[in-house]
Design a protein around this nucleic acid. Structure first.
Length: 114
DNA sequence: CCCTTGACTATCT
DNA sequence: GAGATAGCCAAGG
């Protein structure tokens, strides 16, 4: 039956739902943590197919930018949702809450093993 | 089976 | 650091 796809979606969604508030993870990182390396491009599809609500907006690109086209409605929406959790976008890139000189994107990337 | 798409990434200029 | 380039991989036409 349609089992093989379900396990993939399940693993992805489970991982995404584990991302803590105020943190973000890249598509590739999610795929890796879920046990599917090199499947970064499939993560978005899995989330779209999800019936249950997920913190999808906590998933961004590996370079710290949002995946949607800058200026699009979806982009603005995600930006606002993240801002609600204290995650702000400066010059197109995600920045830590207490953005000091010595803080960087790496501090925001989160892994299940943390 | 071939070609295109896309909410991606790593690498090189 | 921005743009180009080449991998990546499942889906759909």
């Amino acid at each position: 039956m349609f089992v093989s796809q379900l396990s993939f979606d399940e693993a992805i969604c489970k991982t995404v739902s584990r991302i803590a508030r105020g943190r973000v993870m890249s598509y590739g990182a999610v795929a890796r943590a879920a046990g599917f390396p090199r499947h970064a491009r499939m993560v978005s599809k899995a989330m779209s197919r999800s019936v249950k609500p997920l913190p999808w907006y906590r998933v961004i690109k590996s370079d710290g930018t949002l995946a949607f086209a800058a200026g699009s409605e979806a982009y603005t929406n995600q930006q606002n949702l993240l801002a609600k959790e204290g995650v702000y976008i400066i010059k197109g890139k995600v920045v830590p809450i207490a953005a000091d000189e010595d803080s960087n994107l790496d501090m925001l990337l989160w892994g299940p093993e943390e």
